[in-house]
């Protein structure tokens, strides 16, 4: 039997990158990642196990080295493989579309996200982008990353593009607003 070499296709292939006005949308290749939900009372044990492989346990609503907060009792870890832990661990690789919004990201996302985005670097939020559940993280004051389920990649790009185009168009009016 012949071996079939499959070509990996990223979630936003053919859609990004794109620059609209001062805003650039680009796909982020996050590689191998895992959701980790510690069994009741086991968060400390999981943190110790992950520390041994150089991953820090993130605080609620924060990024840490090699991981970030994903929800109540749930974190996402970037790693090729994980050590044994008292937790429900699920391979999340290729399950998500991650898009970075750089430039005036706060103004673009303010049109789509119902939370205050004036947050410190490293803050992460579970919230909505339009009607989609999403994970929004502040990488820098002028760069955010938005993560949605992979099946929503095209919708996310459409929503971000529409918002960025509207802001660019308003800026082009050259009037005081």
């Amino acid at each position: 039997m012949s071996v079939v070499n499959l070509i990996a296709k990223s979630a936003c292939a053919g859609l990004l990158p794109v620059t609209i006005g001062d805003v650039t949308l680009a796909e982020v290749d996050v590689g191998q990642m895992w959701s980790v939900s510690p069994f009741a009372g086991s968060e400390k044990d999981c943190a110790v196990a992950l520390k041994a492989v150089g991953v820090a346990w993130p605080q609620v609503g924060q990024r840490a080295e090699g991981a970030y907060w994903l929800g109540l009792d749930q974190v996402m870890v970037y790693a090729d493989a994980l050590p044994e832990m008292p937790a429900a661990v699920t391979d999340q690789s290729d399950a998500w579309a991650v898009v970075s919004v750089s430039g005036d990201a706060q103004t673009v996302l303010a049109r789509l996200v119902p939370v205050d985005l004036r947050v410190p670097e490293g803050a992460v939020m579970r919230t909505l982008v339009g009607h989609m559940t999403a994970h929004v993280s502040c990488v820098a004051h002028d760069r955010f990353e938005v993560m949605v389920m992979r099946s929503m990649a095209r919708t996310l790009v459409h929503d971000l593009t529409t918002a960025a185009e509207a802001i660019a168009a308003r800026g082009a009016l050259d009037v005081d607003i």
């Binding site: 929800g71 579970r126 919230t127 909505l128």
Partner: peptide
């Protein structure tokens, strides 16, 4: 249910 948030 904080459905579109932390899940609590």
């Amino acid at each position: 249910h904080h459905e579109a948030g932390c899940g609590a």
